[in-house]
């Protein structure tokens, strides 16, 4: 085998730790009303930079937080729109007709790459308000970021077979189930936010390793800053992520750490921002 080919194989299989500190695309950040009161935008941006984030998918309840943060750091923030005016809407939004008007108004005014993260389970996905939300995502060419069980994900795809869905926390499903879903749906990506079952002590669990190696281009990491204090966890989460990613081949680690986020989310938003791109606004 030629030496060059061997060298390339070695580079691909080398542990991620061999390189410099991995950038991280954080696919699960919230900046809700209580957060912007206690962690002002400049502090939030400083924490993102301290964590070594390349970019982050940011949403908030209400959307004002996302817009404030985007204005403070457009190079870091990729905005997505939650169907929540306060975090209290989590439990009620699926039956709240006023949410549709809220989404329409924000979509008219601002650019987003996705609608989410929303909480949607089972047959609730077929209620009128979620259906209208999916229709808006289709109209504006946006991803869906779903904190859902597999049933709801199936229902979203049934409504819109071309949907691109980021499956938050990969539904807290077992790795085997996540793999089944990824095999079945080409347009499904998985965020690993708030999960620790895939790695312990810097080592990747075998069942998850198999998933990462089968679908290196479909996983992303995320912190989930669901309370303001968790903004201070961003650097620790990035450190922890780099630790277990170092146990994977470098190419795979880089994809999960940031390349997938950049390609699927960051790239889509950049196209929206460009003068020629995007359906919305």
């Amino acid at each position: 085998m030629p030496k060059l080919v061997l060298a390339l194989i070695a580079a691909v299989l080398a542990p991620a730790a061999a390189g410099a500190e991995l950038p991280v695309f954080d696919a699960h950040v919230h900046y809700s009303h209580d957060a912007w009161e206690t962690v002002p935008p400049k502090d939030a941006v400083a924490l993102m930079r301290k964590a070594g984030l390349k970019r982050a998918l940011v949403s908030s309840s209400n959307d004002q937080g996302t817009q404030m943060l985007y204005e403070a750091a457009p190079d870091l923030v990729v905005p997505e729109l939650r169907p929540y005016r306060t975090r209290g809407d989590i439990a009620t939004w699926v039956r709240d007709e006023a949410i549709v008007g809220y989404l329409e108004e924000r979509l008219r005014r601002y650019r987003f790459v996705a609608i989410g993260e929303f909480h949607l389970f089972g047959a609730d996905a077929d209620l009128p308000v979620p259906r209208r939300m999916v229709a808006l995502a289709r109209e504006y060419g946006l991803m869906l970021h779903a904190h859902s069980d597999a049933d709801a994900v199936e229902r979203l795809f049934a409504q819109w077979p071309q949907a691109r869905i980021l499956w938050a926390h990969a539904g807290f499903e077992r790795p085997e189930r996540v793999r089944e879903m990824l095999r079945k749906h080409q347009n499904l990506w998985a965020d690993l936010a708030f999960r620790t079952d895939h790695a312990a002590g810097g080592k990747v669990v075998p069942e998850w390793r198999a998933a990462f190696l089968e679908f290196p281009d479909r996983f992303m990491v995320g912190t989930d800053t669901y309370v303001p204090e968790r903004w201070h966890y961003l650097p620790e989460h990035a450190r922890w992520s780099r630790e277990w990613l170092a146990d994977l081949p470098r190419e795979v680690a880089e994809r999960i750490a940031w390349r997938n986020g950049e390609a699927v989310i960051g790239g889509a938003f950049d196209r929206q921002r460009s003068p020629q791109g995007g359906a919305g606004g």
Partner: peptide, 9 residues
């Protein structure tokens, strides 16, 4: 004992 994200706070 294993470190988990939920342990924060």
């Amino acid at each position: 004992v294993a470190l988990e994200h939920r342990n924060f706070g």
